[in-house]
Amino acid sequence: MPVFARAQLRRQRINFALFLGPALVLLFLFFVAPIVIDLFLAFTDMGRTLAVGKFTLENFERMFTRDTRLLGALGVTFIFVLATLGIFNVTFALLLALVTTAVPPRLGAFFRAVWLLPRMSPSVVYALLWLWVADPNERGLLNQIVMHVFDMPPIDLRNNHPLLVIILANGFIGASLGMLIFTSAIRSIPEHLFHAARVDGAGSLAIVRYITLPALRWPISYMTIHQTLSLLVSFEYILLITGGGPFYDTTVFSLYAYRRAFESGEYAYGAALSLILVVIGVLAALALWRLMDMKQLLQQPRIEVH
């Protein structure tokens, strides 16, 4: 090999390490390594002492045969994901996007900014606000409204309807992402289409149905898949607002894994539960992918050019 070509090859390798290296290290540290460690731990008996005594299938045997909480956690997760997604992250986000693009631009921007506020505040602060809103004594915001506007006795939302509280808390913050994506998708619809539809006789609702919604098909599909996965594994607000309680009433699967690992100190069992969550996530993503025909979105558009 000539000297020149060898030097060039060397430089290519150095460049590769220089430019891709840092990203690869981070990728490995935070994405690959945890999965490997989790996979490893799931088949051990690691407990509070962090000592690995033996490799075993006990965790999985316990999960499928003896763990009476697991089914409950799965049910809570199902309701939580479905309701948050269905009511807020997609439907309400869509409504927000439609409304804020229909009103005068400044007003629309103002409302979108308001809905983005919780995303910008630290999650602990946001959770604290919800604690104040749902506070069971008569000074809670909700109770002030309930007592003074509706003349009813104070209610303890967190104790009596804990699932509702965590759905509301997650939904109010989750709607903003969909709102932003749907808004920009609506903005990218050529204005002539709206003009043409109006001249063709369509009213506002018909325009939403025949022009706007068809153009939002892919953003909606994408948001549904993305938010399903995101809600499956997120439990920070639940932990901060209800702590998974009362009892196990708001313990979703991911929080259940967390509680087993860090509250009970059963690290190996927590790892095994997380592994199952990963499997559930992958299956859900694949099912939704198939259901929404996302393959078609990622394919090259086949437009004949004459």
Partner: peptide, 8 residues
């Protein structure tokens, strides 16, 4: 731009 409805 003709403004045809692309989904129809």
């Amino acid at each position: 731009s003709y403004a045809l409805y692309p989904n129809m």
